[in-house]
Design a binder for these strands. Structure first.
Lengths: 177, 177
DNA sequence: TAACCCATGTAACCTGTTACATGATTAA
DNA sequence: TTAATCATGTAACAGGTTACATGGGTTA
């Protein structure tokens, strides 16, 4: 039931359509929870059946109609009670580490190339996070309550990506010399 | 098809039964790929059908019989070719970050308590990794090829857990004062 | 004598992925 | 005129979770 929580969290941030949500899941919430548009549409139907969200049909000229979803008070209560229930650390699923674990059956050049490839991806993600930090949180001493929480999640991304980069560099060195 | 790779990687490390694999997925490979025993048994059947692994039935007195699975050369080739195919960074799925993203609908005490709870879990994991490092890799200048790769994955765990701890501490401070 | 370990499995269900489908509008 | 954007959906399948089931052996 975790996709539902991510959707409710996104809708709590701002009411929007399934299509908008799908785009949000490519940024913001999507940085720590990924989902395709099909999953989102399916989940929205269930959430509406459970009265956690309300849909308002918006008729548009020259564009397909859309449904704007809003959290109901029941949905908000449900989100809050989930947040208040302690959880364990989310399990990892990481391809790169599986590859490196079995790395000895390939050549070290292959593994080093893959590490460099991942280093480039992490560097790009770090740059994305840093530019969001500069653009949406230029003044860290003046954060609203909502902003402070968003900023904390951004800091996590920046810290973790920085750590990945350091580890990639260290591992490449260990394998090249 | 990623569980299959994790199983092949585990079997490449050492031939074992489904039951042993399930235990391995609570440590070693399990640190970066989790799976239940039901998933493992189901996947083993498929891998055997595809001739990526071979089963040898071991009859035991006073204990249920068991099947020891070994990688075939076809399975090894398949694992190697997967490792040689570049992959993108694995997507995240993290409950805590979703909770914090929507943190403003709960009290800051709730969020701080959850951060402390997670900090304790990360500290425990870090200790686990550090004791493995001390016990299985006491002399880092004398690593075999296989050990070097395992050591690199352990270093990742140590680095990431350390970063999580730093982030938890920083976030708690931001919310408490 | 209760609980846990060894060892494997079935069944039902939920979640996630991929492909396909529609149809108008807008920018290159 | 080609591709992308807006907006929603169906269908089939793969992967993951939870509960249930068996039955002997060992440890507290």
């Amino acid at each position: 039931m975790a996709l539902s929580h991510a959707i409710l969290a996104a809708l709590n941030d701002c009411a929007c359509s399934g299509y908008d949500l799908a785009k949000k899941f490519d940024g913001s919430v999507g940085f720590f929870w990924n989902a395709t548009h099909q999953q989102i549409y399916r989940e929205l139907i269930k959430l509406e059946e459970q009265s956690y969200i309300d849909a308002q049909l918006i008729h548009q000229e020259h564009r397909p109609d859309k449904k704007i979803y809003t959290l109901t008070s029941k949905g908000e209560e449900y989100l809050r009670s989930w947040i208040e229930t302690p959880s364990t650390v989310s399990p990892l699923k990481d391809d790169l580490l599986v590859k490196i674990f079995a790395g000895s059956i390939a050549s070290s050049e292959t593994i080093v190339a893959e590490l460099k490839h991942h280093r480039a991806q992490h560097l790009e993600t770090l740059h994305t996070y840093q530019s969001i930090a500069a653009q949406v949180f230029p003044d860290r001493s003046q954060l609203s309550n909502v902003e402070r929480y968003h900023y904390i999640t951004l800091r996590q991304g920046i810290g973790i990506e920085t750590e990945w980069l350091a580890w990639c560099a260290e591992s490449i060195e260990l394998l090249e010399f």
